[in-house]
Simulated assay, not measured.
Amino acid sequence: MAKRLNLALPYVAWPDQDRQLFEAAHPRGDLFDLHPNAKLSDRTVYARRSTWGQFLQILLVHRPEQLAASPCLRVTVDNLRFATELLKRNCSDLTVANFLQRIHLVVRAMYPDEDWRWIYTAQRRIQRQAIPLPHREVLSSEVYPIGLSLVEKAIAASRVRGQATVNDAEIFRDGLVILTLTEQAMRRGELAAIDINEHLEKNDTLWVISLPAELTKTHKARRYELSERLSGHVDLYLEVYRPLFPNADRHTGMWPYKDRPMVDKMIRRYVRKHTQDALGFAVTPHRFRNAAATFTSVVDPANIRMAKGLLGHTSLAMTEKHYVDGSRSRLAARAHAKAWETLVAASKRQ
């Protein structure tokens, strides 16, 4: 029962009116489209569609008669209370709050003239009482060896056998994913979206990943310059291991899985598996970003602002609030202030 709660009704199975209203409220326009939702990223629209599909699935299983009504009449206090109580069986309060937030955004976009503030109020109440799940602090220096070990394991197995196999390719791929996440602190959606023809370029001996604005959460183009060591692993991956996957020559995704590119959720699953095996606890791709920010605050607290640029944030406040351990952030802030005072004093003496 718990797993079924997380299922979403496929888009093609939605009632016709839901599909029409959703598409009208989330147009995929160009730069000159003035619709307020035209600038939303594909990932944001996908998340909203998944949440609305999840709501429809709950109604289909438990209150199927509701699907005959218009979307406006389905979004009631009773239906949302029922849905959130079901979700609470296997979801955290924060997940439930995110569910309500997206429902609010979707129905407000579908029916902008109606008053949906009551959903926002309920979402904020749940969010305020939510207890964040405890996460063990992890540093980049702890997860990087995991990726390196997987890469070396694949290479060693290939040498012993005299040739590389698909199993070696899978291990090498997973190791390279972890190394890339550790070094570049990319979001998993960005990582999954890498196209070897469109986004990878060789600059002398180093590889560069260039992602256009439409593929990033911040809607700003990102450029990731890989280190010499990581670039060497990318060379080996592209030349030896990636071609071993079935149909690898028929798509240009960076990370093949069987006969198709990996999606971001699949990347998350494998990263969690390998970190669980190595550390005794799972680390999600998102936690790699925390690891990078915290590692920066530990080894170079005077330059804590480097973490903001590393994570692609527009403000240091965002970095400190969500990615750096609070105590370390305060220590880093004091170190940064002291370093600034030293620079000012030195400039006055000159």
Score class of each variant (00 low, 15 high):
Pro36Asp: 05
Asp18His: 07
Ala97Asp: 09
Pro301Ala: 15
Arg108Ala: 12
Arg19Tyr: 03
Leu331Lys: 14
Leu310Ala: 05
Tyr237Leu: 02
Met186Gln: 14
Ile131Thr: 14
Leu311His: 02
Asn90Pro: 03
Arg108Ser: 14
Ile209Trp: 00
Thr165Trp: 14
Gln101Ala: 11
Val263Thr: 03
Gln101Asp: 13
Arg334Phe: 15
Ala122His: 11
Ser210Leu: 10
Leu316Ala: 08
Val12Glu: 15
Gln101Cys: 12
Val45Gln: 06
Gln101Glu: 13
Lys321Asp: 03
Lys338His: 10
Ala25Leu: 08
Val106Glu: 08
Leu236Arg: 15
Phe55Arg: 03
Ile103Asn: 10
Pro134Val: 10
Glu85Pro: 09
Arg125Thr: 15
Ala332Gly: 14
Thr319Met: 05
Asp168Gln: 05
Met254His: 03
Asp115Cys: 03
Gln129Pro: 00
Asn79Cys: 11
Lys348Gln: 08
Trp52Tyr: 11
Ala221Thr: 06
Glu170Ala: 15
Lys348Thr: 08
Thr294Arg: 14
Leu150Arg: 05
Asp78Glu: 14
Ala278Trp: 10
Leu34Met: 08
Asp93Glu: 06
Leu236Phe: 12
Ile267Trp: 00
Glu170Trp: 15
Leu311Asp: 02
Leu181Thr: 06
Tyr120Asp: 07
His26Arg: 01
Thr182Trp: 07
Leu56Cys: 01
Met266Lys: 14
His313Thr: 01
Leu244Trp: 11
Asp195Ser: 05
Pro301His: 09
Gln20Leu: 15
Trp340Ala: 14
Gln57Ala: 08
Glu142Leu: 03
Ala97Phe: 04
Leu59Thr: 09
Pro71Met: 10
Ile119Thr: 10
Leu100Asp: 02
Ser315Glu: 05
Lys273Val: 08
Arg250Asp: 01
Ile58Leu: 15
Leu310Glu: 06
Thr121Asn: 11
Ala221Gln: 02
Thr76Glu: 00
His104Val: 00
Gln163Cys: 05
Glu320Asp: 07
Pro134Cys: 10
Phe32Lys: 08
Lys338Pro: 01
Leu226Pro: 05
Arg188Gln: 05
Glu198Pro: 00
His62Glu: 02
Met186Val: 05
Ala346Thr: 12
Asn6Ser: 10
Glu341Met: 14
His199Glu: 03
Gln350Glu: 13
Val234Lys: 14
Leu60Met: 11
Leu310Gln: 12
Ala8Gln: 08
Gly309Asp: 04
Tyr241Phe: 15
Leu9Tyr: 09
Tyr257His: 13
Pro10Ile: 10
Val61Tyr: 06
Phe281His: 12
Gly53Ile: 10
Val177Gln: 06
